[in-house]
Simulated assay, not measured.
Amino acid sequence: MPKERITSDKSKDRKGPKEVYVTLQDLIKLQFEARGFSFLPKYAVQSILSGRHRSKLRGRGLDFDEVRKYIPGDDIRNIDWKVTARVGVTHTKEFTEEKERPVLFVVDQGTHMFFGSKLYFKSVIAAHLAALGAWRTLEVGDRVGGLVFNGTKDYFVMPKRNRQAVQRFLSRISEFNQVLSTDKVTLKFDNPLLEALKKTNEVVTHDYLVVVLSDLNYANDQVIKQLIRLKKNNDVIFGHVWDPLEKEILAKKITLSDGEYQILIAKDKTLKNNYKKAQAALLQKTQEDFKKYGIPFLSFSTLESPAHQLRALISSNKRKR
Results as ranks from 00 to 15, higher is better:
residue 124 V to A: 02
residue 12 K to E: 14
residue 297 F to G: 07
residue 301 S to A: 07
residue 21 Y to I: 01
residue 21 Y to K: 15
residue 194 L to I: 05
residue 16 G to F: 09
residue 8 S to F: 11
residue 143 R to G: 09
residue 161 R to I: 03
residue 32 F to R: 15
residue 9 D to A: 06
residue 154 D to M: 15
residue 136 R to A: 11
residue 321 R to N: 08
residue 120 Y to D: 11
residue 262 Q to T: 10
residue 230 L to V: 03
residue 225 K to Q: 14
residue 124 V to C: 02
residue 80 D to I: 03
residue 189 F to V: 05
residue 206 H to Y: 10
residue 251 A to P: 06
residue 273 N to Q: 12
residue 316 S to P: 14
residue 19 E to R: 04
residue 82 K to M: 13
residue 235 D to Q: 09
residue 82 K to T: 12
residue 65 D to A: 13
residue 280 A to F: 08
residue 43 Y to W: 11
residue 237 I to C: 01
residue 227 L to G: 00
residue 165 A to W: 04
residue 1 M to C: 01
residue 141 G to T: 09
residue 133 G to T: 08
residue 225 K to C: 04
residue 309 Q to K: 08
residue 47 S to H: 10
residue 52 R to P: 11
residue 233 N to E: 13
residue 258 D to Q: 06
residue 223 V to G: 11
residue 121 F to N: 14
residue 294 G to T: 09
residue 241 V to Y: 01
residue 218 Y to S: 10
residue 268 D to V: 07
residue 295 I to C: 01
residue 62 L to C: 06
residue 166 V to P: 10
residue 293 Y to Q: 04
residue 177 N to V: 12
residue 263 I to L: 08
residue 296 P to G: 09
residue 71 I to N: 08
residue 301 S to I: 00
residue 150 N to D: 15
residue 230 L to A: 05
residue 263 I to W: 06
residue 246 E to C: 07
residue 225 K to T: 09
residue 11 S to C: 02
residue 236 V to F: 05
residue 152 T to E: 10
residue 285 K to H: 04
residue 305 S to K: 10
residue 299 S to I: 12
residue 29 K to D: 11
residue 73 G to M: 02
residue 146 G to N: 13
residue 29 K to A: 01
residue 201 N to T: 05
residue 268 D to S: 10
residue 44 A to F: 12
residue 318 K to P: 01
residue 252 K to D: 12
residue 292 K to P: 07
residue 3 K to R: 13
residue 171 S to A: 14
residue 304 E to R: 14
residue 309 Q to W: 00
residue 288 E to M: 11
residue 108 D to T: 09
residue 227 L to Y: 04
residue 224 I to R: 14
residue 205 T to V: 15
residue 225 K to H: 06
residue 44 A to D: 01
residue 275 Y to K: 02
residue 58 R to K: 13
residue 81 W to H: 06
residue 160 K to P: 02
residue 142 D to M: 00
residue 143 R to P: 06
residue 298 L to T: 07
residue 214 S to E: 03
residue 7 T to R: 14
residue 278 A to L: 10
residue 78 N to H: 15
residue 221 D to Y: 01
residue 99 K to F: 09
residue 272 K to P: 12
residue 237 I to E: 09
residue 179 V to Q: 15
residue 303 L to M: 10
residue 255 T to H: 05
residue 119 L to P: 02
residue 14 R to H: 11
residue 290 F to E: 06
residue 136 R to C: 00
residue 115 F to N: 15
residue 305 S to L: 13
residue 218 Y to V: 09
residue 15 K to I: 07
residue 167 Q to G: 10
residue 96 T to N: 12
residue 94 E to H: 13
residue 63 D to G: 14
residue 30 L to S: 11
residue 181 S to P: 04
residue 164 Q to G: 09
residue 106 V to K: 00
residue 208 Y to N: 01
residue 239 G to K: 04
residue 118 K to G: 03
residue 23 T to L: 06
residue 208 Y to R: 01
residue 321 R to I: 15
residue 317 N to M: 15
residue 318 K to T: 12
residue 312 A to W: 04
residue 191 N to Y: 04
residue 302 T to I: 01
residue 226 Q to G: 00
residue 134 A to C: 06
residue 183 D to I: 02
residue 204 V to P: 04
residue 264 L to D: 06
residue 160 K to V: 03
residue 255 T to S: 10
residue 173 I to S: 08
residue 146 G to M: 08
residue 214 S to G: 02
residue 71 I to W: 05
residue 71 I to C: 05
residue 154 D to V: 00
